[in-house]
């Protein structure tokens, strides 16, 4: 038997529309606990500080914060404050939403980036978004700084940093 006649033909769009389908809209809602290390990180954000975890064995200053050093396989040794500035490691300019719908021309593009934070060990980056810049001018290696919400509006979430902007 040769694999040259494979079964299944697939439905055309019209056939799919006409086919009997069972529809289900699940309601999958979650509340995820912050946990211990991230809880401290979020408390720091509320105060306008970025905290990183340190491991005195390997010497790394780690972001995102964590309760244990996965390389040394031991608890981390507390948190240290790092800067709220960094360098763009990589970025994208996104024109679509998750459901594949397109952003309208007048909507601002999403510019996600990996940002290596000053004061953390080399390569210790976080994902955030870039703002206050013409998307065409964003470059890898560009220096950026956090733009914080006013202190009274901060709630202890990652969005207490509105975005990072070039400076």
């Amino acid at each position: 038997m040769k694999i040259d006649q494979v079964p299944m033909k697939g439905l055309t769009s019209e056939e799919y529309e006409r086919a009997i389908k069972i529809k289900w809209q699940p309601k999958l809602q979650y509340a995820w606990d912050n946990g211990i290390a991230i809880g401290k990180y979020l408390a720091g954000l509320k105060e306008g500080k970025i905290l990183a975890s340190q491991c005195i064995k390997c010497g790394r200053i780690m972001l995102p914060v964590r309760s244990f050093c996965e390389l040394c396989w031991r608890p981390t040794d507390g948190e240290v404050e790092v800067k709220d500035t960094g360098v763009i490691n990589t970025f994208a300019i996104c024109h679509v939403n998750w459901d594949a719908s397109r952003l309208r021309p007048d909507e601002p593009r999403h510019i996600p980036a990996v940002i290596e934070i000053d004061g953390a060990s080399k390569g210790q980056g976080i994902m955030h978004v870039i703002g206050n810049v013409d998307p065409k001018k964003v470059k890898i290696g560009m220096r950026v700084r956090a733009v914080w919400k006013p202190a009274q509006e901060r709630t202890g979430t990652i969005t207490d940093i509105i975005f990072f902007e070039p400076y």
Binding site: A92, C94, V96, P112, V129
Partner: peptide, 14 residues
């Protein structure tokens, strides 16, 4: 990550 990344609304293509 539900706490440090999801609030930024990342998608796979990012």
């Amino acid at each position: 990550d539900h706490t440090t990344e999801q609030p930024l609304k990342p998608t796979l293509i990012w």
